[in-house]
């Protein structure tokens, strides 16, 4: 049986979408490594642009990493117990709380940032610190961490595990560490990768929250796009890609692992 025209059309459209998504990325990689983008391949390749980006913007790379790690630490601390509390409690109250906590997903980052600035702009030291950016990132990423953990909690019989540990004399907080946390680890890993990826790429909030002293990578990118030559902007984008690719691969591996685990 030959392929139907609908299948062929589907393949063609899918291929076009893939090209539309991937080709600009490849162009950007190429531009970041080429001596002169406008003159094409004949001009040759160089790492000079990357070096220049590093000397100009390396602080934003480090800051983004620090912000992402602090965000991760806070979302773990806040989100994992919070997710467990919501699942334990259940019912209407828990749903309202969940709705509230996940509100930042539904509200544009700009509005959230504005709200934060209006509320805390007066606290100079806090406003100037990296922590202010971190708070914004936690606000935005917390729902993702909580959802990832809740999703796993819903697939395991956490109540029976908890009761089983209780019957052996384990107090509530120890049960949380001994049997709940180890068994929601796939969710925590997936949530953590998502949080770090989102934090590294966060722009909408950060653009409003940052100060000249607290620029992150995407803020630097926006700078570079507006004021630097195409090759430098591309090289900077390349640095960003190198940072997020391992995270994305990790996310995929984590997803595959959970899928395998739930299937077996």
């Amino acid at each position: 049986m030959g392929l139907r025209w609908t299948t062929l059309a589907g393949f063609a459209i899918t291929a076009l979408i893939a090209l539309f998504l991937v080709v600009p990325v490849l162009l950007s990689v190429y531009a970041g490594l080429s001596v002169n983008y406008a003159r094409g391949i004949s001009a040759g390749f160089t790492l000079d642009w990357v070096r220049q980006v590093w000397s100009l913007y390396s602080d934003t790379v480090w800051r983004s990493l620090i912000v992402a790690l602090m965000t991760l630490a806070l979302t773990l601390l806040i989100g994992v117990p919070g997710a467990y509390a919501l699942v334990r409690r259940g019912g209407r109250f828990a749903r309202i709380v969940e709705e509230l906590v996940t509100l930042p997903v539904a509200i544009p980052g700009l509005a959230l940032a504005l709200a934060l600035i209006l509320a805390y702009g007066g606290f100079g030291a806090f406003r100037q610190s990296t922590l202010f950016v971190v708070v914004g990132h936690v606000l935005f990423t917390l729902p993702f961490m909580m959802r990832a953990v809740i999703a796993i909690l819903e697939t395991i019989d956490w109540r029976t595990l908890d009761e089983g540990a209780a019957s052996l004399g384990s107090p509530a907080w120890l049960r949380f560490f001994d049997v709940i946390l180890p068994n929601v680890r796939p969710g925590i890993v997936a949530g953590a990768l998502t949080v770090v990826t989102l934090s590294i790429g966060e722009f909408n909030l950060t653009w409003m929250l940052h100060t000249p002293m607290t620029k992150t990578l995407p803020v630097g990118l926006a700078d570079a796009y507006a004021s630097m030559r195409l090759e430098v902007a591309s090289a900077y984008t390349l640095v960003f890609l190198i940072m997020v690719i391992p995270l994305l691969i990790g996310l995929q591996l984590a997803a595959d692992l959970t899928e395998k685990r739930t299937k077996s």
Partner: peptide, 14 residues
């Protein structure tokens, strides 16, 4: 994983 600014840049390259 791309922030909006990077997407904008991709469109410029396109």
């Amino acid at each position: 994983a791309f922030p909006g600014v990077v997407v904008g840049f991709m469109i410029i390259l396109f």
